[in-house]
């Protein structure tokens, strides 16, 4: 299980600066991705999960985005310090991405085969003919029938599911070490989603790349991931083995998130809810960012920001509840009342 680390992200911070102030979209993210492993990053809209994924390849438009701090180490080499030219050799080659919207993520006026082939020519130095053949081969590999014909077509002639397969073919053409998938199945119907997830798992077995899987769907996490990081307000609040998180979530936010899911295999009268709303990224509270909505909140939670602490062997959680300080704080509150 202890495969070698391919990608390590340390204290990544990306902020957005506008006339409204500074939005701390990504605010100190740490994780490691091992070879052949899938790391899920899950959270609700605005939590910074997509921005985290874009920050890795420095794809955040600047301005308004601003890289503030951190390291992104691919096999020990820091992408943050690289020149644009060096980085371009990594994009689409060692690290590639697929995006949420298959309808808009492909160039509407270029045949899909060419959109795959151009990366092959660029990164692998293939000739036009070789690149085209390989491109057709990739289209076959992702399970699209009559790939020779499809390669010559433009995106509008393909269904949403097929376009997402093309995106996968494009991302995997150069056998990357890391694939970042940003909500790749969110826009698709469930039966098509099932096809796409199956293809991704299958190709991961063949190619052995590590996958960072960004999603809001906890079901997809359970289906796809080995590790999972739960994001809230720009930070990871819980990092676990995926198989543990659903049975025994640690962070109150994770607990609330799982409780608010309607279950497919049992009847519930009422769903558990998380009170309140997410704080504004322009103005995060001083203490724990979840304290305001948290049923376990005490004085210390409101006053001091918790750090991501190790819990047991395989878990990390950003919560005071698992510390002695919290016990003291609770005791004090009980005494007062």
């Amino acid at each position: 299980m202890m495969n070698e680390i391919v990608l390590e992200v340390k204290n990544l911070k990306t902020h957005f600066i506008s006339n409204k102030g500074t939005a701390k979209a990504v605010d100190g993210i740490d994780f490691v991705l091992r070879k052949g492993e899938t790391l899920g990053i899950v959270g609700e809209s605005g939590c910074g999960k997509s921005m985290t994924s874009l920050s890795i390849l420095r794809l955040i438009p600047s301005p308004p985005g601003k890289f503030v701090d951190g390291e992104v180490l691919l096999n020990g080499k820091d992408l943050v310090k690289m020149s644009n030219e060096e980085l371009r050799k990594i994009r689409g080659n060692q690290i590639s991405m697929i995006f949420q919207e298959p309808m808009t993520s492909l160039n509407p006026v270029i045949p899909v085969g060419e959109q795959i082939a151009e990366a092959l020519r660029l990164h692998q130095g293939l000739s036009r003919k070789q690149a085209w053949d390989k491109s057709v081969e990739m289209i076959r590999l992702v399970g699209i029938p009559s790939p020779e014909k499809r390669a010559k077509q433009e995106p509008f002639q393909l269904s949403g599911g097929m376009r997402q397969r093309i995106m996968i073919a494009m991302a995997l053409a150069c056998t990357p070490e890391v694939l970042i998938a940003d909500e790749p199945t969110t826009a698709l119907d469930v039966t098509i989603q099932a096809q796409i997830l199956e293809i991704m798992k299958d190709l991961q077995r063949k190619i052995g790349m590590g996958i960072i899987f960004i999603t809001h769907d906890l079901g997809v996490v359970a289906e796809m991931c080995d590790q999972v990081g739960v994001m809230y307000a720009g930070q990871i609040v819980e990092h676990r083995d995926a198989k543990d998180i659903f049975n025994n979530p640690l962070h109150p936010y994770t607990q609330g998130l799982i409780g608010s899911l309607p279950k497919l295999y049992e009847d519930q009268e009422e769903l558990q809810i998380i009170e309140g709303t997410v704080p504004s990224p322009y103005d995060y509270p001083e203490g724990c960012r979840f304290a305001e909505r948290c049923p376990f909140s005490t004085d210390i939670c409101v006053q001091k920001e918790p750090s991501l602490i190790q819990y047991g062997d395989n878990a990390k959680v950003r919560c005071w509840k698992y510390t002695n300080e919290w016990q003291d704080s609770l005791a004090k509150e009980v005494l007062k009342s």
Partner: peptide, 19 residues
């Protein structure tokens, strides 16, 4: 979005602009 895709592919700026 497709320009972002092109960037993520590692294409150089002039290719992204002209192609």
């Amino acid at each position: 979005d497709y320009i972002r895709t092109a960037k993520a592919k590692g294409l150089a700026e002039h290719v992204i602009i002209y192609k």
